[in-house]
Write a protein that binds this DNA or RNA. Structure first.
Lengths: 303, 303
DNA sequence: AGCTCTTATGAATCATTGA
DNA sequence: GTCAATGATTCATAAGAGC
């Protein structure tokens, strides 16, 4: 198993990666923002044009039977849901992607708040794109244990029981796992119930590790390669390594690469290797020199 | 309270309804289908153009502070999710609608099934459109018991109590539970957990009465008027009447109007009145005569 | 170990204020 | 005016402390 981290804009970094070398791309897009100086701050109105050239690289490096899973949710802009996400779906289809499915991540502990015109937003999209109608999918790997007892309750009971069910099905370490032993396995649905990550000590991950874990189990096998082009704090890499998949993480921010490296090292212990390849900071600042030169010139193995 | 049913294409029927006379439009769109003999069978590729002129009438009859809630889910066509729903959102925005929010209906007991490339579809969209940024919303009406309390309480109750508690809550979306709790209520999120309705025969796309009920409580007051232009078996009307709202139901199929009428009469008993206004069947078959003539000529009070 | 209680926090929005 | 920053609002969860 190998984890490789690149610091740089994935648009540039990916150009040095061979065709059809990745089995799954899982990522959460940088947040669209109206302010320009924020990290990943791309104005919603320009989001699609910003993303498309990167998606083209994703398409190139993804294997023919691979999957691209995009975690995204549109912001509210001036009282309305912005349309950049659904415009993105249409644009990606024009680029050749197949929009196979839209999974829902139900965020059990969503951000609180009260507004006169809407409730708390408790869900995000997980858009599933592929290059081909025949893609790899290992449905048995994410089956959920369920028995007569729970089946009856599922159809009748409310939110609290859904919570309990899914905490049991998360990574197999739910408190009530004893209840599921010996029960029959059933396939899940396209709705995932997971809490958001709220760690006390910094290191705020955007999504819980169970989220990429679920899709990695579903769309890859042991030894496959997972790519996260906006790797952030490295949650996708952690999930990959736990499941015995190689992973490649890219992020434009040096501090995130450092953070991801730290988390990965803590995760894998001594058995696996972690490589960090740095790309000169000039690339990020939009130097006049071609980024290719910087990539070649400033690559350095750190660990 | 008054319930009025019209038989005819809502495009024609609505032309005889005054401007800004409706507080809420709640409907579940006829299923897009490639087969033409199915009810509401509009080909996905022509769905938007079919819907837009009707949506224009919706806009006209809706009050300035009213809401339009559309229950819809795109079909799978040739292995992909079709894009007609997201294209519809963009088209409605061009028509002047504000896309305020997208609620999710999580179908707890969705239909079983297995496909090689996807799981069971357990969710549908509830698209919320308005004419103005300042629309009516009565958030207190749909508050739910606080989670922590409920969790603790439920764990202390026995199995039988759980079932009884829940079946009692189905008629009022947790309101009865709320009464038992007495105090601590919180605002819900934009994810609704409801089972699908399995009892009704002969109607393909059925939603539970709790679904329109929730939005009727949220966006209207007692005495307001609710419109369902594709009323089907009349679930929206039943919900409206239970909550003391007037309702107008339209459907192109005579058998559905009959079914809705039957359900409504059973629901309201003797206190309220039900009117069924028939529009000549020729309208539905695309007669060369103008539908206006038929409407005027064939209107008949049935009960 | 278990169990209860307390507390920090999270890819949020809207209204208001200030430049 | 337009744009940016600040304050008010709000709740499920996990970690940590105490017993």
């Amino acid at each position: 198993m190998k984890a490789t981290l690149y610091q740089g804009d994935c648009l540039e970094v990916l150009k040095h990666m061979p065709d059809e070398s990745v089995d799954l791309i899982f990522t959460s897009l940088p947040y669209a923002d109206r302010r320009k100086n924020v990290y990943g701050g791309v104005h919603p109105d320009h989001y699609v044009e910003w993303f498309l050239p990167r998606a083209r690289e994703f398409y190139r490096v993804l294997k023919e039977d691979g999957s691209f899973v995009l975690n995204i949710k549109e912001r509210v802009v001036e009282g309305e849901r912005h349309t950049y996400v659904i415009e993105l779906i249409l644009a990606l289809k024009k680029q050749g992607w197949l929009w196979v499915e839209e999974y829902i991540w139900h965020k059990k502990n969503c951000y609180p708040g009260k507004w006169p015109n809407r409730f708390r937003d408790a869900w995000e999209r997980l858009l599933h794109f592929t290059k081909s109608k025949k893609f790899k999918m290992f449905q048995e790997e994410v089956m959920v244990p369920i028995g007569d007892w729970s089946e009856k309750r599922l159809s009748k009971l409310g939110q609290k029981d859904l919570v309990r069910l899914n905490s049991a099905s998360r990574s197999g370490f739910g408190k009530r796992i004893a209840n599921w032993l010996g029960k029959e396995l059933v396939y899940p649905t396209n709705v995932l119930h997971l809490p958001t990550e709220c760690t006390l000590k910094g290191h705020s991950a955007v999504f819980p590790v169970e989220l990429p874990q679920w899709f990695i189990k579903l769309f890859t096998q042991s030894g496959d390669t997972v790519l996260d082009p906006f790797v952030g704090s490295g949650t996708t890499c952690v999930a990959s390594l736990r499941l015995g998949r190689n992973c490649i993480g890219i992020d434009i921010k040096r501090e995130y690469i450092d953070l991801a490296e730290e988390r990965i090292k803590k995760e894998v212990g001594t058995l696996m290797q972690v490589q960090v390849i740095e790309v000169g900071r000039e690339v990020n600042k939009g130097s006049s020199k071609s980024s290719l030169d910087y990539f070649a010139g400033n690559m350095a193995l750190r660990s």
